[in-house]
Design a protein around this nucleic acid. Structure first.
Length: 536
RNA sequence: GGCCCCUUAGUCUAGUGGUCAGGACGCAUGGUUCUCAGCCAUGAAUCAGGGGUUCAACUCCCCUAGGGGCUACCA
C-alpha cells in the first residue's frame, strides 16, 4: 500500500504528456528548385514521426537566398507536398501560432537576435569586402591551409565600428567562435559527436543585404518555433556544430537531432538535374500513385525488419521509427519503385481504377472514344463497388456515359495485373479508343506477313460477321471452330488476329479484346489487315 | 588541403563474437497459358582490402581504399 502510494505519482509524471515538451518537427525546403525525392523523403520522415507521436508537422520555407528563390519553386513544392498528402499542421496556407512560416518575412526577428549576440559580445560587425575574402581564401588554399576567415574585424573597437557604420560601409554580422574547446551533441541515428572549435570559423550570421544566412536562420526559427526534433539530410551534419554554438549563445535549449542518409543518383553522386527523374512533379505527371512513391521513399533509409516492404500510409505511420533509420546513403532504384507502385495499384478498388484510368485517357486525348461499342455482356455496373462516390468525386473533362464506364470497367477487369503503371495506359489499351494506334512492325512481320494469313483473316471476319450473340464464349468458339476446319492450331489464328486488332504482339485475352472492340470494329480491322498485307 | 560521415549481391536492406549470412526489386530457368502480365517452383549473385584482438570475426579495434558531406555574404 505504501509502495503504491509512493510509486503512482512517479509513473504519472513520466507518462503525462507535457505540453511544454511536445513533439514538433519541421520540413524546411528552400524554394530554389522543385521538390526532389531526397527532400520528399526528409519531409516524409518528419511527417511520419509527427503523426506517429501525435506531434505537429511544420512546413517552413527557407527563402533567404534572394537570388535563387523563385515563386514557381515555392508553388511547385507546395503542390508536390499536397499531392503526396504530406499534410502539414502549420505553415504556408495553413498558418499557425509561430508564423510567419516564410523566412523572408521574419527579417526583424533575425536582426533582433543578431543584435542580442552583438550586445552579448558573441558576434561582431565585419566590414571585409567580398574581394578581400576571396583573395584571402585563395592565398590560404595556395598555402594548403584550411580556408577560414582570418578574424580581421573581430577585434574592432566600438569607435572603429561606429566610424565605419557612419560612412555607410557595407557590413555583415559574424559569430565569434571560441578559439579553443569543442562542442558535443548526440544524434538519434548516428550517436555522439565531438567537434573541435578550432576547425570552425567566424561564420556570417547576417549578410550585407540584411538577410540571415541559413545557419543562423534555422537556429533562430527552430528555437522560436519550438522544434523538438530536427530530422534532416545528413548533408547538414557538418553544420550542426555551428548551430549548437548558436543555440548556446542565444540561450535556447538544444533540440534532438536525427540526420538521415542522403539519396544519391545511380552514379553515387549527389542528386541533380542530370539524374533525370528526380522531381516529385515528374512522377505526378506520369500518374504514379502517391502512396506507392511514399512507400518506396520510406524504404530508402528505413526498414521495419528487412522483410515487410509494402506499407499503406497508415501502416507507415504505425511502424515508423527513427531508431531504425539506416546510416548508409541510398540510391534511387526506379525498377523497385515501379514494382511497389504496381503493388499499390493492385490494391486500388475497381471504382478507383476507373477514375484513375479515365484521368489518363482524358489527358492523352483518347476521350471521347472514336467509336461506340455495345458490349453484349458487360460488367454489371451495380457490382462496381463504390461507383456512387466515383461519379461525384472527380470532374473529368469528358463525362463518360454509363455505357462507356461499363466498357472501361470491363477493360480494367480484363487487364487485371497487366495494369502496372498508369502511364502505360495509352500504349496498352489505346486501340480500344482510337483507330490511330501504334502498329508494331515486328509484330506484323512475325504474324501477318505470310501468304496464307490474309485469307484466314477474311474468313475469321466472315465468321464474326455472322455471329449474332457477340460475347466472349461465342467469340472463342468461332475462332476455334474455324481453326479446326482449316486444320491449323488455334494459335495460328489467334496471333495474327491479335496483331490485326491491336497492332501488338501482346494483349489481354484475345477473345475479350474481340468482345470489347465489338463486332463492327473487329470485322473492320481483320479485313483491313487482310487487305493491307495481301500484296505479298 | 582540413574536418566529418558512410561501406552486407547490380539496387534497397535484415542480421549475430560461432547462422547453410535472411528478405525484396532486378536478372536467369522451368511450369501454367493464345501472347504478355500474374501466379508457382528453381537458380546465379554479397559481408571493400589489409592488419590486429579472440579458441572463433561479416560482427570489436586500427590502417588503407572508395564514395559522400561541410569547409560561401548557397541552403
Amino acid at each position: 500500500m505504501i509502495i503504491r502510494l509512493y510509486l503512482k505519482p512517479v509513473g504519472r509524471c513520466r507518462t503525462m504528456p507535457n505540453p511544454e515538451n511536445h513533439i514538433r518537427v519541421r520540413f524546411a525546403p528552400s524554394p530554389t528548385g522543385h521538390l526532389h525525392v531526397g527532400g520528399a523523403r526528409t519531409a516524409l520522415y518528419n511527417y511520419l514521426y509527427a503523426r506517429k507521436t501525435g506531434g505537429k508537422f511544420i512546413l517552413r520555407i527557407e527563402d533567404t537566398d534572394a537570388k535563387r528563390s523563385t515563386a514557381e519553386s515555392y508553388k511547385g513544392i507546395i503542390e508536390s507536398m499536397e499531392w503526396l498528402g504530406l499534410n502539414w499542421d502549420e505553415g504556408p496556407l495553413r498558418g499557425g501560432d509561430f508564423g510567419p512560416y516564410t523566412q523572408s518575412r521574419r527579417r526583424v526577428l533575425y536582426n533582433n537576435e543578431a543584435q542580442k549576440l552583438i550586445d552579448k559580445g558573441k558576434a561582431y560587425y565585419c566590414f571585409c569586402t567580398p574581394e578581400r575574402l576571396e583573395t584571402m581564401r585563395f592565398e590560404m588554399e595556395e598555402k594548403k591551409l584550411p580556408p577560414k576567415y582570418d578574424g580581421r574585424c573581430r577585434g574592432l573597437s566600438e569607435v572603429e565600428v561606429a566610424e565605419r557604420l557612419s560612412k555607410g560601409i557595407p557590413h555583415v554580422f559574424r559569430f565569434k567562435m571560441p578559439i579553443e574547446g569543442s562542442v558535443f551533441f548526440r544524434d538519434i541515428v548516428r550517436g555522439e559527436f565531438s567537434f573541435e572549435n578550432g576547425n570552425l570559423d567566424d561564420f556570417v550570421l547576417i549578410k550585407s543585404d540584411g538577410r540571415p544566412t541559413y545557419n543562423f536562420a534555422v537556429v533562430v526559427d527552430d528555437a522560436h518555433m519550438k522544434i523538438s526534433h530536427i530530422i534532416r539530410g545528413d548533408d547538414h551534419l557538418s553544420n550542426t556544430p555551428r548551430q549548437v554554438h548558436l543555440y548556446r549563445a542565444l540561450g535556447y535549449n538544444l533540440p534532438k537531432f536525427a540526420h538521415l542518409p542522403m539519396i544519391l543518383g545511380s552514379d553515387h553522386s549527389r542528386l541533380s538535374k542530370r539524374h533525370g527523374a528526380t522531381s516529385i512533379a515528374y512522377y505526378r505527371n506520369r500518374h504514379y500513385l502517391p502512396e506507392g512513391l511514399l512507400n518506396y521513399l520510406a524504404l530508402l533509409g528505413w526498414s521495419l525488419d528487412g522483410k515487410k516492404e509494402l506499407f499503406t500510409r497508415k501502416a507507415l505511420i504505425d511502424k515508423f521509427s527513427l531508431k531504425k533509420v539506416s546510416k548508409n546513403p541510398a540510391i534511387f532504384d526506379n525498377s523497385k519503385m515501379e514494382w511497389i507502385n504496381s503493388e499499390h495499384l493492385k490494391e486500388v478498388s475497381l471504382a478507383g481504377k476507373i477514375s484513375l484510368v479515365q484521368d489518363v485517357l482524358d489527358e492523352e486525348g483518347l476521350l471521347p472514344p472514336e467509336f461506340d461499342v455495345d458490349i453484349t455482356k458487360p460488367v454489371d455496373l451495380k457490382i462496381v463497388p463504390g461507383r456512387e462516390e466515383m461519379k461525384e468525386e472527380k470532374s473529368h473533362n469528358y463525362k463518360m456515359s454509363d455505357k462507356e464506364i461499363e466498357r472501361l470497367a470491363t477493360i480494367i477487369i480484363v487487364l487485371g495485373n497487366r495494369l502496372k503503371l498508369l502511364k502505360n495506359i495509352p500504349a496498352i489499351i489505346g486501340y480500344f479508343y482510337t483507330d490511330d494506334y501504334k502498329v508494331d512492325e515486328e509484330a506484323v512481320r512475325m504474324h501477318l506477313l505470310r501468304s496464307e494469313i490474309p485469307n484466314r483473316m477474311n474468313k475469321l471476319a466472315d465468321e464474326y460477321e455472322k455471329l449474332k450473340y457477340f460475347d466472349r464464349k461465342s467469340a472463342e468458339k468461332v475462332l476455334r471452330d474455324l481453326a479446326f476446319d482449316l486444320k491449323i492450331a488455334a494459335g495460328e489464328l489467334i496471333h495474327p488476329c491479335r496483331v490485326a486488332l491491336t497492332g501488338k504482339i501482346v494483349s489481354p485475352d484475345i477473345f475479350w479484346v474481340v468482345v470489347l472492340l465489338g463486332k463492327d470494329k473487329t470485322v473492320e480491322r481483320l479485313r483491313k489487315a487482310a487487305k493491307l498485307y495481301s500484296v505479298i
